[in-house]
Design a protein around this nucleic acid. Structure first.
Length: 180
DNA sequence: TAGGCCATCTGGTCCT
DNA sequence: AGGACCAGATGGCCTA
Protein backbone atom coordinates (compact mmCIF):
# COMPACT_ATOMS: atom_id res chain seq x y z
CA UNK A 1 0.00 0.00 0.00
CA UNK A 2 2.23 2.79 1.24
CA UNK A 3 5.13 1.88 -0.97
CA UNK A 4 7.22 4.89 -0.09
CA UNK A 5 7.00 4.22 3.59
CA UNK A 6 7.84 0.59 3.03
CA UNK A 7 10.76 1.60 0.90
CA UNK A 8 11.98 3.82 3.71
CA UNK A 9 11.63 0.97 6.15
CA UNK A 10 13.46 -1.35 3.80
CA UNK A 11 16.20 1.26 3.40
CA UNK A 12 16.64 1.41 7.14
CA UNK A 13 16.81 -2.36 7.27
CA UNK A 14 19.33 -2.44 4.45
CA UNK A 15 21.40 0.23 6.18
CA UNK A 16 21.32 -1.97 9.21
CA UNK A 17 22.48 -4.98 7.20
CA UNK A 18 25.24 -2.92 5.59
CA UNK A 19 26.26 -1.68 8.98
CA UNK A 20 26.43 -5.26 10.16
CA UNK A 21 28.72 -6.18 7.29
CA UNK A 22 30.99 -3.21 7.70
CA UNK A 23 30.96 -3.75 11.43
CA UNK A 24 32.06 -7.32 10.86
CA UNK A 25 34.89 -6.15 8.63
CA UNK A 26 35.69 -3.28 10.90
CA UNK A 27 35.80 -5.40 14.00
CA UNK A 28 37.90 -8.07 12.39
CA UNK A 29 40.46 -5.51 11.31
CA UNK A 30 40.12 -3.84 14.65
CA UNK A 31 40.65 -7.13 16.37
CA UNK A 32 44.02 -7.14 14.71
CA UNK A 33 44.55 -3.58 15.82
CA UNK A 34 43.48 -4.53 19.30
CA UNK A 35 45.90 -7.42 19.39
CA UNK A 36 48.49 -5.00 18.22
CA UNK A 37 47.25 -2.55 20.81
CA UNK A 38 47.59 -5.03 23.62
CA UNK A 39 51.11 -5.66 22.58
CA UNK A 40 51.87 -1.94 22.31
CA UNK A 41 50.11 -1.24 25.57
CA UNK A 42 52.22 -3.76 27.28
CA UNK A 43 55.30 -2.37 25.77
CA UNK A 44 54.71 1.38 25.85
CA UNK A 45 51.24 2.46 26.93
CA UNK A 46 48.01 3.56 25.30
CA UNK A 47 48.14 4.69 21.68
CA UNK A 48 45.92 7.39 20.18
CA UNK A 49 44.89 5.07 17.34
CA UNK A 50 43.26 2.58 19.67
CA UNK A 51 41.33 5.38 21.37
CA UNK A 52 39.96 6.52 18.02
CA UNK A 53 38.91 3.08 16.91
CA UNK A 54 37.27 2.33 20.23
CA UNK A 55 35.26 5.53 19.93
CA UNK A 56 34.36 4.76 16.36
CA UNK A 57 33.28 1.26 17.26
CA UNK A 58 31.18 2.61 20.11
CA UNK A 59 29.54 5.13 17.78
CA UNK A 60 28.80 2.46 15.22
CA UNK A 61 27.28 0.11 17.71
CA UNK A 62 25.24 2.98 19.13
CA UNK A 63 24.10 3.81 15.61
CA UNK A 64 23.12 0.23 15.06
CA UNK A 65 21.32 0.06 18.39
CA UNK A 66 19.58 3.28 17.54
CA UNK A 67 18.43 1.89 14.19
CA UNK A 68 17.15 -1.26 15.84
CA UNK A 69 15.30 0.71 18.47
CA UNK A 70 13.87 2.91 15.73
CA UNK A 71 12.55 -0.09 13.83
CA UNK A 72 11.04 -1.47 17.02
CA UNK A 73 9.36 1.77 17.97
CA UNK A 74 8.14 2.24 14.39
CA UNK A 75 6.51 -1.16 14.65
CA UNK A 76 4.91 -0.28 17.99
CA UNK A 77 3.69 3.00 16.58
CA UNK A 78 2.19 1.19 13.61
CA UNK A 79 0.40 -1.22 15.94
CA UNK A 80 -0.85 1.67 18.03
CA UNK A 81 -2.22 3.42 14.98
CA UNK A 82 -3.85 0.21 13.80
CA UNK A 83 -5.61 -0.08 17.15
CA UNK A 84 -6.70 3.50 16.87
CA UNK A 85 -8.06 2.84 13.39
CA UNK A 86 -9.91 -0.24 14.62
CA UNK A 87 -11.53 1.93 17.24
CA UNK A 88 -12.51 4.42 14.56
CA UNK A 89 -13.98 1.60 12.51
CA UNK A 90 -15.98 0.35 15.48
CA UNK A 91 -17.28 3.85 16.00
CA UNK A 92 -18.26 4.16 12.33
CA UNK A 93 -20.31 1.02 12.65
CA UNK A 94 -22.42 2.28 15.53
CA UNK A 95 -23.22 5.79 14.43
CA UNK A 96 -26.03 6.16 11.94
CA UNK A 97 -25.19 8.07 8.82
CA UNK A 98 -26.47 8.44 5.32
CA UNK A 99 -23.34 7.56 3.44
CA UNK A 100 -23.29 3.83 3.98
CA UNK A 101 -21.68 3.34 0.58
CA UNK A 102 -18.82 5.64 1.44
CA UNK A 103 -16.51 5.35 4.41
CA UNK A 104 -16.69 8.24 6.84
CA UNK A 105 -13.47 10.11 7.32
CA UNK A 106 -12.04 10.35 10.81
CA UNK A 107 -13.13 13.91 11.32
CA UNK A 108 -16.62 13.09 10.07
CA UNK A 109 -16.76 10.08 12.38
CA UNK A 110 -15.81 12.12 15.43
CA UNK A 111 -18.12 14.98 14.60
CA UNK A 112 -21.09 12.72 13.91
CA UNK A 113 -20.37 10.69 17.03
CA UNK A 114 -20.31 13.79 19.17
CA UNK A 115 -23.57 15.04 17.73
CA UNK A 116 -25.15 11.62 17.95
CA UNK A 117 -24.27 11.39 21.62
CA UNK A 118 -25.76 14.80 22.21
CA UNK A 119 -28.90 13.76 20.39
CA UNK A 120 -29.23 10.56 22.39
CA UNK A 121 -28.61 12.48 25.59
CA UNK A 122 -31.39 14.89 24.76
CA UNK A 123 -33.72 12.01 23.90
CA UNK A 124 -32.96 10.25 27.16
CA UNK A 125 -33.55 13.43 29.06
CA UNK A 126 -36.93 13.82 27.47
CA UNK A 127 -37.84 10.23 28.25
CA UNK A 128 -36.50 10.20 31.79
CA UNK A 129 -38.13 13.44 32.81
CA UNK A 130 -41.33 12.27 31.12
CA UNK A 131 -42.82 15.69 30.77
CA UNK A 132 -41.90 19.15 29.67
CA UNK A 133 -40.07 19.78 32.93
CA UNK A 134 -37.02 18.93 30.91
CA UNK A 135 -38.08 21.69 28.59
CA UNK A 136 -38.45 24.40 31.10
CA UNK A 137 -35.80 26.88 31.77
CA UNK A 138 -32.76 26.42 33.88
CA UNK A 139 -33.28 29.84 35.42
CA UNK A 140 -35.41 29.32 38.49
CA UNK A 141 -35.39 25.69 38.09
CA UNK A 142 -38.86 24.17 38.81
CA UNK A 143 -38.18 22.50 42.17
CA UNK A 144 -37.30 18.86 41.72
CA UNK A 145 -38.71 18.41 38.22
CA UNK A 146 -35.91 16.62 36.30
CA UNK A 147 -33.71 13.60 37.02
CA UNK A 148 -30.25 13.84 38.54
CA UNK A 149 -28.94 13.02 35.12
CA UNK A 150 -30.83 15.94 33.70
CA UNK A 151 -29.64 18.24 36.46
CA UNK A 152 -26.10 17.19 35.81
CA UNK A 153 -26.58 17.73 32.10
CA UNK A 154 -27.99 21.17 32.77
CA UNK A 155 -25.00 22.04 34.91
CA UNK A 156 -22.68 20.89 32.20
CA UNK A 157 -24.38 22.38 29.18
CA UNK A 158 -27.25 24.66 30.04
CA UNK A 159 -30.74 24.16 28.76
CA UNK A 160 -30.48 25.89 25.41
CA UNK A 161 -27.84 23.48 24.20
CA UNK A 162 -30.17 20.55 23.91
CA UNK A 163 -32.24 21.66 20.98
CA UNK A 164 -29.18 23.14 19.47
CA UNK A 165 -27.52 19.71 19.58
CA UNK A 166 -30.46 18.08 17.87
CA UNK A 167 -30.36 20.72 15.23
CA UNK A 168 -26.60 20.40 14.83
CA UNK A 169 -26.81 16.65 14.38
CA UNK A 170 -29.47 16.82 11.73
CA UNK A 171 -27.64 19.67 10.06
CA UNK A 172 -24.48 17.63 10.09
CA UNK A 173 -26.20 14.68 8.47
CA UNK A 174 -27.75 17.02 5.98
CA UNK A 175 -24.45 18.59 5.05
CA UNK A 176 -22.80 15.18 4.67
CA UNK A 177 -25.67 14.16 2.44
CA UNK A 178 -25.06 17.24 0.36
CA UNK A 179 -21.39 16.43 0.28
CA UNK A 180 -21.89 12.91 -1.01
C1' DT B 1 -3.98 18.90 -11.17
C1' DA B 2 -5.04 20.62 -6.58
C1' DG B 3 -6.77 19.35 -2.34
C1' DG B 4 -8.34 16.02 1.10
C1' DC B 5 -7.35 12.03 3.56
C1' DC B 6 -4.42 8.70 5.10
C1' DA B 7 -0.26 5.66 6.66
C1' DT B 8 4.16 5.81 8.14
C1' DC B 9 8.41 7.61 10.06
C1' DT B 10 10.59 10.31 13.42
C1' DG B 11 12.13 12.86 17.49
C1' DG B 12 10.51 14.79 21.65
C1' DT B 13 8.03 14.38 25.98
C1' DC B 14 5.47 12.04 29.47
C1' DC B 15 4.50 8.13 32.31
C1' DT B 16 5.25 3.82 34.79
C1' DA C 1 15.09 2.67 31.11
C1' DG C 2 11.72 1.67 28.05
C1' DG C 3 7.19 2.07 26.27
C1' DA C 4 3.19 5.09 25.20
C1' DC C 5 1.72 9.14 23.34
C1' DC C 6 1.96 13.14 20.44
C1' DA C 7 2.70 16.28 16.65
C1' DG C 8 5.16 17.50 12.46
C1' DA C 9 6.90 15.98 8.03
C1' DT C 10 6.53 13.35 3.97
C1' DG C 11 4.61 11.15 0.21
C1' DG C 12 0.93 8.04 -1.95
C1' DC C 13 -3.84 7.48 -3.44
C1' DC C 14 -8.21 9.17 -4.81
C1' DT C 15 -11.67 12.36 -6.39
C1' DA C 16 -13.72 16.56 -8.25
Amino acid sequence: MKTKARAARRRLEIDLEDEDESMAQQTSSEDDNDKCFVYKERSKGKSQESGKSARKRRQMSQGKEHSIRRLESNERERQRMHKLNNAFQALREVIPHVRAEKKLSKIETLTLAKNYINTLTATILNMSSGFPAAQDTGSGGGGGGGSKFYQHYQQQHGEEDKDEHLEKYSTQIHSFRQGS
